[in-house]
Design a binder for these strands. Sequence first.
DNA 1: GTAGGGTTAG
Length: 625
Amino acid sequence: MRALLNLFKRFSIITVVPRNGFSNSSFLCASISSSTSSPRPVELIQSKTTNQIALSISSALQKCTNLSSVKKAHAKTFAFGLQHDKHLSIKIAILYVSFDKVDTANIVFESTPNPSSCFWNNMIRGYATEGQFGRSLGLYNKMLQEGLIPDKFAFPFALKSCAGLSNLQLGKLVHQHLLCCGCTDDLFVNAALLDMYAKCGDVEIARLVFDKMAVRDLVCWTSMISGYAHNGYNSETLEFFNLMRGSGVKPNRVSLLSVLLACGSLGALRKGEWFHNYAIQTGFANDILVVTAVMDMYAKCGSLDLARGLFNEAAGKDVVCWSSMIACYGIHGDGRKAIDLFDAMLEAGVSPNHVTFTCVLSACGHSGLLEEGRRYFKLMKEVFRIAPKLNHFSCMVDLLGRAGQLDEAKNLIENMPVKPDATIWGSLLGACRIYGNLYLAERVADVLFHLDPLQSGYHVLLSNIYAAKGRWNKVEMVRNLMARIGANKIQGFSLIELNDRVHRFSAGDRSHPQSDGILSKLEELAAKMKRLGYVPLTDFALHDIEEEGKEEALSYHSERLAIAFGLINTNPGTAIRVTKNLRICGDCHNAIKFISKIVKRIIIVRDMHRFHHFEDGACSCRDYW
DNA sequence: GTAGGGTTAG
């Protein structure tokens, strides 16, 4: 025991960033101050009658099926002076927790002298389950301060709370605790541990935990697959699904949700369809969670109609399902349909939440519906009493900025009750580029360079604004600044699915086995485009807009390579679907319009923010993106 | 007494 406490003493020197209502600086400090828990008070000698009353309350508690019956039993303990009875208190508190009344449970807990480990664990669980992660960890910390050693029932919830806060540092600390406490073989502890690492973004360590586990159940597999999917490890998600089936573990709805998410992110329609069929065969066709995920997958793979078909057929549509379909219309640039669906949702008696409004406002932004956006923003605040979050302000700033209302957008940022982040200012800087407002751009860039100095995108934007005004000396200055500080460049890439395989291209990529064919296709297209009047947008303002390396010619941007690859490998008339990780550049957007006309194909490109459906020389975004 | 889940800005 002393060795264990000494180990805890060492943990206390680890500095942890304080957040969410409890201070970590003293985290676990007091766990070493008391070497053993204080002696229990001698039980009061109770009369036989009191014991009988306690037994009767205890039996009543076992039959409690609703909150009011718990309250009644709780009141009885006061009436008979049994409010400090430890056995009754814990039962009452656990029941309060089960009816989502963790704060009431905490009042009972606070008034119980020397609560047992079981009681502490249930309180830590209660707060973790209710999403009050800071409070849950605050209690975990306090339990250690009281000299109690956490056990296998405390760790899953302490870890869940670390995961909920995405606080990897705290998670690692709790990991050390469980190593010291010898809880390394418990299935639940390990499942929570791998989930914590996955939710905090460290998928590799999560996988190490998974691989080390002697026994694994379905939850561990699904937690791992969900970790891959939610951290953008899309191919790994699909591989892991196969591994799971190969190991004789039958995939469930949670693993299906993960693979569908991965297919959507990859834009892998064929694979997505396969999983949709699999979901039907395995009896999930009417599961609203799976249906929503399938819908989302189809929309993200460019098939809006398939998504809408499923939505129409779905029974028991809830707010998530409605919001999801609204978001689908939004990313496809059909703001009107998004709004119509929102109104239909209200008529169906489903209440919108803050996500629904994010979807609606974003849809207005993608379609340039300025007045509608303003109206829904007001509706959210005044009728639905939903306080706007950063997401909503971000949508509004984007909407106002793109519509040319730069001053209003700036005022909104300066007066919002939440702290504006770099991306919201970045959105305003983007609007300054569209409208050539150099005066405002310089001021906004100044804020941005302080907020996020290493993000090259903002430097590129400013330099493009200078270039459009012919201020070449300033362009040079920004470029030099970028080189000096070593701004991070995000490499652009595009994905295209062919015969069940997803192919990836980056700008100027010549590593693909079919590289020669791709380049000659692009040359052939370039000649035809020229004859039709295509002029490359060599204006520096549009060059390098998405950080794809200025040394690479525009014509070798990743989306063009992917499209050329699609053209030489598919039959005439087949639609080409490409997914890109950055925003499509102006020159590529223009070029693809020409290509769609020349090859007489529908070309669907999903960029970082939305879909572009190119057909017969035009794009569905009507050049508003 | 314990672990995993669908929608969301730029």
